[in-house]
């Protein structure tokens, strides 16, 4: 969906009179629903761009195997999303930020998921790609808060090995059937799961950094070179 040469404000002014239909992705979604049945619990298509499919937790490995049989043999990535809004806000508490954004309420909003819906705080997301068709699929699945476990993709895609290890140490998600689920990046005595939203960045707790103070002037409008570029 290309906004041909528009120079308007980025709040999207919907210029689509005729809704664009992405036939290839619709067909792919239909064949997935046919193969997996009830396991597909949500989906979203951005026409001519991408497809998101949310499946049941039990069907997570089966969905990967199905897609692999359909020609999606390239393993792109696998990770997780923590939908809890950070209890520390944006961690930019300096005066300059408040000037720009108004006094931001410290109360974080509710847990809201993104495309293809969702019910839980943690979602695992993976992407597979089909090289002959030049099509990619994003797969998501919900994880209940008290049971962060899901089946591993390693029997089908060997590249998932390291991605699942990283997801395990960053979020605490366990992948059943993974041959060697240990820490990948962090030293062995590291405590906590860093990418969870309730894991604080201690340096920012100690000294908040003025986040917006280095706004540089738009090119061509200001003559004097002020503002750092960092």
């Amino acid at each position: 969906m290309s906004s041909a040469d528009t120079t308007v404000e980025p709040d999207a002014v919907e210029a689509a009179e005729v809704p664009v239909v992405d036939e290839r992705r619709e067909a792919l979604l239909a064949s997935l629903v046919e193969a997996l049945g009830d396991a597909v619990v949500g989906s979203h298509i951005r026409p001519l761009d991408d497809l998101w499919v949310r499946v049941d937790r039990e069907a997570w490995p089966t969905a990967a195997a199905t897609l692999k049989d359909m020609g999606f043999t390239f393993f792109d990535y696998l990770s997780a999303i923590d939908w809890l809004p950070s209890p520390y806000g944006r961690d930019m508490d300096a005066q300059e930020d408040l000037v720009v954004s108004g006094a931001e309420p410290k109360v974080p909003g509710p847990v809201e998921q993104g495309y293809a819906g969702g019910d839980t705080r943690f979602q695992v997301i993976g992407r597979l790609y089909s090289i002959p068709d030049a099509l990619g699929v994003h797969l998501k699945t919900d994880l209940p808060d008290d049971d962060l476990r899901v089946g591993s993709w390693t029997p089908h895609f060997r590249g998932a090995n390291w991605h699942e290890r990283e997801c395990f140490e960053m979020f605490g998600v366990e992948f059943t059937g993974h041959p060697n689920l240990v820490k990948l990046y962090l030293p062995a005595d590291f405590q906590g799961h860093p990418l969870r939203k309730d894991f604080p960045l201690l340096s920012r707790r100690v000294r908040p950094w003025p986040g917006i103070v280095d706004v540089e002037p738009m090119p061509g409008r200001d003559d004097n070179e002020e503002g750092d570029g960092e």
Partner: peptide, 13 residues
């Protein structure tokens, strides 16, 4: 001093 990663959880500042 840690540089651009001054607030990271895994960088020695």
């Amino acid at each position: 001093c840690g540089g651009p990663y001054w607030d990271s959880y895994s960088v020695t500042k």
